[in-house]
C-alpha cells in the first residue's frame, strides 16, 4: 500500500505525545511499517507542537510536507489553520474547536482568526470540527481531549474498534484506562 500520513498538531502540554504513541504502537501491531516523528524541547513550553505519523509497507521519511497529509488531527483551532497547507487534496482535518490564545494575541500584537475554519471550509477543505474539550470533561478529565479526537479519527483507519480499545489499555496507566475508553467512545460515536 501507499504510505499514509497523519499529523497530530496542537499546543505544548495538550497530550499529543500520548496520542502519537498510541497510534504508532497500534499501527505496528497491525503489521505496518511505521515512523513517528516528534520534536522535544522548546515546543513543550506552550509552543506549537506537531507530530508526524506515517505508515505503510515501507516508510522512508519520518516527516510530512506540504500537501501530503491524509488526516490532520488538531487539538486546537488555530493550529489546524497553521498546518492546513499540509493536507492532501481530499484529506480530512479533525479539529477540536477549543481556542487557546498564543502570546502575540494575549498581548494584543495579533488577532486570533476566529472564523478561520469556515474560511478553510469555503476553500474546499474537508473539516470535521467538534468541541472535544466538553466531551473530555464529560469522560472525566479535560486532558482526555487527545483520546476523544483519536476516537473521532479512528473510523478513517482500516482497524477494528476492539483493536483501538486494546491499544488504549496497552498505552495509558491502568487507573486512567476506563476514563480514556469513555473518551474514545464519545469521539467514536460523535
Amino acid at each position: 500500500m501507499e504510505t499514509k500520513s497523519i499529523m497530530i498538531v496542537g499546543v505544548g502540554g495538550q497530550g499529543s505525545l500520548l496520542a502519537s504513541k498510541l497510534l504508532g504502537r497500534l499501527l505496528m501491531d497491525e503489521g505496518y511499517d511505521v515512523k513517528v516523528s516528534e520534536v522535544h524541547g522548546m515546543s513543550q513550553r506552550g509552543g506549537s507542537v506537531v507530530t508526524y505519523v506515517r505508515f505503510g509497507d515501507k516508510v522512508y521519511s519520518p516527516i510530512i510536507t506540504e500537501g501530503e497529509a491524509d488526516i490532520i488531527i488538531s487539538f486546537e483551532k488555530l493550529e489546524a489553520a497553521r498546518y492546513a497547507k499540509f493536507l492532501k487534496k481530499d484529506g480530512l482535518i479533525v479539529v477540536n474547536t477549543q481556542q487557546i490564545d498564543p502570546m502575540p494575541v494575549i498581548i494584543g500584537a495579533a488577532t486570533y482568526p476566529e472564523e478561520v475554519l469556515t474560511e478553510l471550509t469555503d476553500k474546499g477543505l474537508n473539516i470535521e470540527a467538534m468541541d472535544a474539550l466538553s466531551l473530555a470533561v464529560q469522560a472525566g478529565s479535560p486532558k482526555a481531549v487527545n483520546i476523544v479526537l483519536m476516537g473521532r479519527a479512528a473510523k478513517q483507519f482500516d482497524i477494528p474498534y476492539e483493536r483501538w480499545i486494546k491499544a488504549i489499555e496497552n498505552t495509558v496507566a491502568e487507573r486512567f484506562v476506563e476514563m480514556n475508553k469513555k473518551a474514545f467512545d464519545l469521539g467514536y460515536n460523535y
Binding site: V11, G12, M42, S43, Q44, R45, G46, G47, S48, Y60, S61, I63, T65, E66, G67, E68, L78, E79, A81, R82, A84, K85, F86, L87, K88, P102, M103, P104, V105, A110, T111, Y112, P113, E115, V116, E119, L120, K123, G124, L125
Partner: peptide, 28 residues
C-alpha cells in the same frame, strides 16, 4: 522529501492556505 522533489522538478503537491493571518505561537 519536498527539498529533494523540488530539486529534481518532481514536486507536484501543494496545499491550501488560509487568507487570514495566522499568529505565531512561540514557546513561553
Amino acid at each position: 522529501q519536498q527539498t529533494i522533489a523540488k530539486a529534481f522538478d518532481m514536486d507536484d503537491k501543494c496545499g491550501v492556505t488560509a487568507d487570514s493571518a495566522i499568529p505565531m505561537r512561540p514557546p513561553m
